[in-house]
Design a protein around this nucleic acid. Structure first.
Lengths: 118, 118
DNA sequence: CTGAATCCAGATGGATACTG
DNA sequence: CAGTATCCATCTGGATTCAG
């Protein structure tokens, strides 16, 4: 049926667009690692994340955190300490990523064994 | 306890490394979309994928498919037609990504509504 | 401490033309 | 059809320095 095929293809297009939307929000070398770091500790300071995420520079961390904030995945709070400290935490929406991150982690473990450990 | 904290942190490091391993295999602008396209149809030819994945160039498609093949996520089969056609399909290992892709799709839908559709 | 600004090399990726 | 080759603009991201 011409109609059925078209419907199926449109469904598929929608799925792919949604996946792409998700990836847009999570693109960049460090975003997942940053979210991982924050969600694991609840709240986390700039310099803490800088230590957690191996290899990231402050320039990149700053940039990616900003993007995460724009996408409402992360909440930024400035504390009136001296000198200033800043806390980052996941928003409710950001927390919905935990399932995906856990699965990515599981899959990554299997994948490494498959590729490297043979 | 010092010991407990250390253990917890090591667990966290492992998780982050695994997530990073997963993302390494899936990096690049198009990989997820490519996998999406293939897995949805079972088998898919080069030119089909080129049409499915909106915006990708043959240069990029070729490159990303090659990387997916190296990571054993995709299997490439040359058919002895005239002119030659090539079929791509997911490996067993590649198929284990379906759960993640589905979840990414679901999350992406919610995310778009949250960010754009407000 | 938390960033922003600048500089710069190298990676990424599009357009186009070409091969088997 | 399924790529490869080349050229070239843009983007990415590290190092370093500076500012509030």
């Amino acid at each position: 049926m011409k109609c059925a095929i078209t419907e199926f293809q449109q469904e598929q297009k929608k799925r792919m667009r949604s996946v792409q939307d998700a990836m847009d929000a999570l693109n960049g070398k460090w975003k997942i690692a940053i979210i991982s770091s924050i969600c694991c500790y609840g709240k986390r300071r700039f310099s803490d994340i800088l230590n957690d995420v191996e290899g990231v520079s402050n320039r990149m961390l700053s940039k990616e955190l900003k993007e995460l904030e724009i996408n409402q995945l992360v909440k930024r709070t400035v504390l009136a300490t001296q000198p200033i400290t800043v806390e980052y935490e996941l928003t409710e929406h950001g927390n919905t990523l935990q399932t995906i991150i856990t699965e990515l982690s599981d899959w990554g473990t299997v994948h490494r064994k498959k590729i490297v450990g043979k």
